[in-house]
């Protein structure tokens, strides 16, 4: 079964347009959905919304349980734990609305030692002049994680998201932002692929309004036999005059057996815009390593230093100190095996 399609297809022979899973991936699983939500000025409501998109129709059909929360202004972060004790398979929809002029940090943890499967639709509605800083950490060593994130960003609103895939056998992310006038979207992704991990990232930013600003920044490392496919799309719709869009992708490859595919798409139907993308793939530059090692630092530490420097932009965007330290530890552990 082919899932997580790119919005615009290129030749099917390239194998980058979609992600392939076995047909029964979303069938016959005993799924539950009981996310724990912590935070002040947060109202949990009965959901009346419908999910507009998902990784695929089967994933949409499986995620039958929905929760909706409305977030108002407060200085403390909102924390959401997706997995509860001993839960192994979760599937559900979470609708998060940030009311007008609200400025909040939201931290979503998809962490579990026992988890084997997660299929989540996270739908954000960022109202006018609101500002959401969202961090989503996926850390479940032996799990398949299917994550669909949608964000509708209204006028003058900002949506900054950092998604981190620290551990998962299979990590499939579809991240769609839709920008209205004068809104901002900053999408940052960090992945750490090892063993036979498979990572498929499909990040789409649709710019509808004038003076909107969208950036996509994806950085990660691959080791052993890990495979990553990145599909990034910045889509300037007609009417998006004076808007700006940029996507950057960097993939550090630590093993000759890992594979990296990238499809950075730039679609432009408006003249008065600035759009750019860049991708770079390869191992760490030998001369940088040599320079650091010539200062008496071991090769492993030199690799860590250079890698951390590449990841720094994303790590610094995590506002929550506890999550930031957790991510730093996970990166450190991951680089130990390089």
């Amino acid at each position: 079964m082919k899932i997580n399609y790119s919005p615009v297809l290129t030749s099917q022979n390239y194998g980058t347009n979609y992600y392939q899973v076995i047909d029964s991936t979303f069938d016959n699983k005993n799924v539950s959905f009981n996310p724990k939500i912590y935070g002040e000025n947060v109202t949990i409501e009965n959901n009346t919304f419908a999910v507009s998109s998902a990784i695929c129709d089967q994933a949409k059909a499986q995620a039958k349980i929905s929760k909706a929360i409305v977030i108002e202004q407060n200085n403390t972060p909102v924390k959401i734990d997706i997995f509860q004790n001993k839960e192994t398979c979760v599937a559900g929809n979470l609708f998060i609305t940030l009311n007008e002029y609200t400025n909040r940090d939201i931290i979503i943890n998809i962490e579990s030692e026992t988890a084997t499967f997660a299929n989540l639709n996270l739908v954000f509605n960022i109202k006018k002049s609101a500002n959401a800083n969202v961090t989503i950490l996926s850390n479940a060593n032996n799990a398949q994680i299917f994550l669909n994130i949608e964000a509708k960003i209204e006028e003058n609103a900002k949506f900054k998201s950092v998604t981190i895939s620290a551990a998962a056998n299979e990590y499939v992310l579809k991240h769609t932002t839709s920008l209205l006038e004068n809104s901002t979207s900053e999408t940052k992704c960090l992945y750490l692929g090892k063993n036979k991990d498979k990572i498929d990232l499909n990040i789409i930013s649709e710019i509808h309004g004038k003076f909107a600003n969208s950036t996509i920044n994806v950085v990660g490392s691959l080791n052993n036999f890990a495979e990553k496919s990145f599909k990034g799309t910045i889509d300037f719709k007609q009417g998006a005059a004076k808007s700006y869009g940029d996507e950057k992708e960097l993939c550090l490859m630590f093993s000759p057996s890992c594979k990296s595919k990238a499809l950075p798409i730039l679609l432009c139907a408006e003249e008065d815009v600035e759009g750019s993308h860049s991708t770079a793939t390869g191992k760490i530059d030998e001369s940088s390593l040599f320079y650091i090692m010539s200062r008496g630092i071991s090769k492993r530490d030199a690799i860590k230093m250079v890698s951390m420097a590449k990841f720094a932009n994303i790590i610094q965007s995590i506002n929550d100190e506890e999550t930031k330290n957790k991510v730093l530890n996970l990166i450190d552990r991951n680089l130990d095996n390089v």
Partner: peptide
């Protein structure tokens, strides 16, 4: 503003001993 300009590059890198870079701009 009646025209279109799209960029759809596929980059498939299967070894780490490579120097690869891609840049595109539209406007």
């Amino acid at each position: 503003d009646k025209s279109r300009s799209d960029t759809l590059p596929v980059n498939d890198i299967q070894t780490n001993d490579v120097e690869f870079s891609h840049e595109a701009k539209v406007g």
